[in-house]
Design a protein around this nucleic acid. Structure first.
Length: 826
RNA sequence: GCCGGAAUGGCGGAAUUGGUAGACGCAAGGGACUUAAAAUCCCUCGGAUGACAACAUCCGUGCCGGUUCGAUUCCGGCUUCCGGCACCA
């Protein structure tokens, strides 16, 4: 018989049609106040820095929509909002490059993005859309700044900052990766500026504690822990001999205190001037100049020789009153610990290297616990051990010695146990135009004055020249009408703060705003926030592990402490999608290897493209982009379409049937139907989209086999109807079309995910593998109820097996119920 | 250097707590249909050896070793790749 090829799958018409219907019927608008089984599913919002969404963004939003749709069909009230992280450097750089004002280019780009998001067919609630560059939004970003300010969590100080000479802007440590600007790859230099900071360091321990209460990838939590870098140790106060100035050091090895042979200060340390001996001033200043200039180029070199100079000053060891020289060296960081290190060349490799170069003495104060010998001329001995040359502490184990020495220092008021962190305060000011202005005023009489809440928002001035200035001053200063204002307190002439806020401030609270982004008199709807937050499921790139994801947690903890919200962790469950590369290289505009999804949508349709992204491989691993397999997914959807084109009437009949009323001996189809229902749900839930689609393909193959053999009874009809529901989260447009064609007037997304019947998964006959000495020799098909002895007899009788048993002695017989038999012979 | 993760056919990738390795696809080859092409459908498809053939035997999940009746899975030691951190005292 001739095989009919059937109708072509008219995806373009179908997809456009249903997107319109969904919009008209407001299918994706949910009643936030009436919802009973809330599920807040959030995906990191895009920053519209280019004209179009790239493939990575599609990869973020398509599969996540599939997840959200499944949850909806499982009976949850799913809130799945999307918005635009529109402020910030990428958007501004795009505007500068194209000579368009960022307000204009951002709006145009958002329009493109919105259309593309619509093409995905995502169930985004359009009423919840927010744009962080909208005054209606950033008014409340400024409000949050003021809240932090009034609670002592925002402050200003002069600080050496990472400065990108090309972007003309300050960079956060997180943005100055490998000493290079995250955006433009220029080498970062240092510059002293007065900057605004948020006191995230105050929350270091709270941020660590919260890790125990969230379901996040282990890797992400580890990265945050490393970033916070909590380290327990001691603060020990040395005293400078001439001036009597205290010089506290931080160490984790108080047990080596008697092995200290000199101190080293960071070149930038503020006391260097005060202690340096007059005879050494020239040399010290010269070194400090060089250290400041010797920027990141040197820092990057892998094997960098340590350098330093002697200050001419001496310090006194608080335990034995020994007089030791004070040096400065740039291997000591000004920003960690106290900026002063007690050097123990015998037991710290860095100090050892320094001592070798400058001929400083080495003293052993720890010996191995096992009595073995060590050779300090080869390098430092950094292990814990037993103390020697340490007076009253001799013979103690390092761990005990740390306790005893801490106690003694405490007693004499010269030290204490303390904790040091790698985490620094969050530098939030940017000398850039495209951001939320910091709502502060500087008055000659009153000093630093916060803008009153009633005067928010401080509008971003509409200026023509929005490019950064070379002096480092913000371009906002170019606007006289913005810059000069009246002091809110004394009404005298005053100047506004001209910096804008880091965009990570904008994205640290947006999930609160989604629930009602149109509110004008408050930042969020408390009632809805109480009901909907925290976010149940958050999906986004792993590149945000230490920035966005930590800042958002910090801001939420601040708001919690101010009693403005009643939860202190914003994202209960977090998962990352993998990265799509192009020929193994990261996709970026600068590399010119951007993949535009549009041509695939045009050629294959949105459903096919979405399914292909999900089918390509593991979602959390990502992978290299290769379009050669997309045909297979297009064929798959085409086959579904044609099956229903031909057997639509059967599916319609199947709609009216209930599973329990069907009598059929087709156990294979029963199994397949029920197994697929369970598997697709479980796999989508755990983001294993690829295997969910594979299961749907297998199910389809089974259905086709039934169609070919004419075995199309009630069970087949019923299975067809269920198939549409299973398809719905994966290919929403096609499923909705088929659902309508088989006689439904309501959306498939308003029906419930089918139940599966466990009993169908238990097959009467099963195939058991038979091994001899662990090697597969054959299989036997037996009844499920077979006894162990009967199974063994059947296994041994199998012709492929029996010949391996001839003239052998059976030593052992292993039976794994339902799986296999292994016969061990000799 | 330190901390994670990974390595499976020509390719992307499957493989619930150790239990039939290679599901599902792609590509390729052969065939059907067609004037032809596209589309569609069917068959083969990890490697080696033997046979006309169905088939049989051996090898095979980065490398070496171990535990086990049995290892892609567990343990020890390497190699390579990816991600993160990198003078943090």
């Amino acid at each position: 018989m001739k095989q009919q090829s059937g109708a072509q799958y008219p995806f373009a018409a179908i997809e456009e049609k249903w997107r319109k219907v969904w919009q008209e019927k407001k299918l994706h608008e949910i009643d936030l106040d009436a919802a009973r089984k809330k599920l807040y599913c959030l995906v990191m919002f895009p920053y519209p820095s280019g004209e179009k969404m790239h493939i990575g963004q599609w990869y973020n939003y398509g599969p996540t929509d599939t997840w959200a749709r499944l949850k909806r069909m499982q009976g949850y009230d799913v809130f799945f909002p999307i918005g635009f992280d529109a402020f910030g450097l990428p958007a501004e750089n795009y505007a500068i490059k194209h000579g368009i004002h960022p307000a204009v280019s951002t709006k145009a780009n958002i329009d493109f993005f919105r259309e593309q998001l619509r093409q995905i067919g995502g169930m985004f609630d359009s009423r919840a859309e927010l744009i962080t560059s909208d005054p209606l939004y950033y008014k409340w970003t400024q409000w949050i700044f003021l809240k932090l300010y009034h609670n002592g969590l925002a402050y200003r100080k002069e600080a050496p900052v990472n400065w990108c000479p090309k972007c003309n802007t300050v960079l956060a440590n997180e943005q100055a990766r490998d000493g290079r600007c995250e955006r433009c790859d220029s080498l970062v230099t240092r510059k002293n500026l007065v900057q605004w900071f948020f006191k995230i360091t105050v929350y270091a321990d709270r941020l660590l504690e919260g890790h125990n209460r969230i379901d996040w990838p282990e890797k992400t939590i580890t990265m945050q822990k490393n970033w916070i870098g909590r380290s327990e140790g001691s603060e020990i106060v040395f005293v400078e001999e001439k001036t009597g100035l205290p010089l506290p050091v931080f160490t984790t090895r108080a047990d080596t205190l008697l092995g200290v042979t000199y101190l080293v200060m960071a070149p930038e340390h503020s006391l260097v001037d005060k202690i340096t001996d007059t005879s050494r001033i020239a040399e010290v200043n010269d070194y400090r100049m060089k250290a400041q200039q010797a920027t990141e180029i040197d820092r990057l070199s892998v094997v960098r020789e340590k350098t330093g100079v002697f200050t001419g000053a001496y310090a006194i060891n608080p335990i034995n009153n020994e007089r030791i020289p004070i040096w400065i060296a740039d291997y000591v960081l000004a920003t960690y610990g106290t900026g002063v290190v007690m050097a123990v060349p015998g037991h710290d490799q860095r100090d050892w290297e320094f001592s070798q170069k400058y001929g400083l003495p080495i003293r052993q104060v720890v010996k191995p616990r096992d009595g073995g010998s060590i050779d300090l001329s080869q390098g430092a001995y950094e292990e814990f051990g037993l103390l020697i040359n340490s007076g009253e502490f001799d013979g103690l184990d390092s761990l005990t010695a740390i306790e005893k020495i801490n106690a003694k220092l405490s007693e004499i008021g010269r030290g204490r146990k303390t904790i040091s962190y790698r985490l620094r305060d969050w530098l939030i000011s940017r000398q850039r135009y495209w951001g939320a202005p910091i709502p502060m005023v500087f008055c000659d009489n009153c000093g630093e004055v916060p803008v009153p809440e009633s005067e928010l928002p401080v509008l971003l001035p509409e200026i023509n020249d929005f490019r950064p200035t070379e002096t480092g001053e913000s371009p906002l200063a170019r606007s006289q009408s913005f810059l000069y204002t009246d002091c809110p307190r004394c009404k005298a002439k005053a100047r506004r703060s001209t910096e804008t806020m880091d965009t990570f401030v904008d994205s640290s609270w947006y999930f609160l705003r989604y629930l009602n982004p149109h509110l004008t008199d408050k930042p969020w709807d408390e009632k809805r926030v109480k009901k909907w937050l925290p976010v149940d499921f958050y999906v986004g790139g792993a590149e945000h592990a230490v920035m966005h994801l930590m800042y958002a947690r910090f801001i939420v903890k601040c708001l919690y402490d101010m009693k403005l919200i009643d939860f202190d962790e914003p994202f209960i469950k977090l998962r990352h999608q993998g990265i799509i590369t192009n020929n193994g290289a990261k996709i970026s505009k600068s590399r010119g290897n951007v993949i535009n999804p549009d041509r695939f949508i045009e050629r294959y349709g949105s459903d096919t493209f979405r399914c292909y992204l999900m089918f390509m491989g593991s979602y959390s691993d990502g992978g290299d982009w290769d379009d050669s397999g997309i045909n297979g997914v297009a064929r798959f959807l085409g086959r579904i379409y044609r099956l229903f084109d031909k057997y639509g009437d059967n599916a319609s009949r199947g709609m009216a049937l209930s599973y329990k009323s069907i009598t059929s001996s087709d156990n294979e189809l029963k199994y397949c139907l029920n197994h697929t229902i369970a598997k697709v749900a479980a796999d989508i839930e755990s983001l294993d989209f690829n295997t969910a689609i594979a299961a749907m393909m297998e199910f389809l193959n089974v259905l086709y086999k039934r169609a070919e053999t004419g075995d199309t009874g009630d069970l087949f009809d019923y299975a067809l109807a269920q198939y549409v529901k299973l398809l719905a989260p994966l290919a929403p447009h096609l499923a909705e079309e088929l659902w309508s064609r088989i006689g439904n007037s309501d959306s498939v997304f308003n029906c419930r995910w089918p139940e599966f019947y466990k009993e169908a998964l238990i097959l009467e006959m099963m195939t058991i593998a038979v091994q001899v000495n662990g090697k597969l020799r054959g299989t036997v098909k037996v009844a499920r109820t077979i006894s162990e002895s009967e199974l063994l007899r059947a296994a041994k009788a199998n012709e492929h097996v029996s010949r391996y048993l001839e003239n052998k002695v059976i030593i052992k017989e292993i039976v794994v119920p339902g799986k296999l038999v292994n016969i061990v012979v000799k």
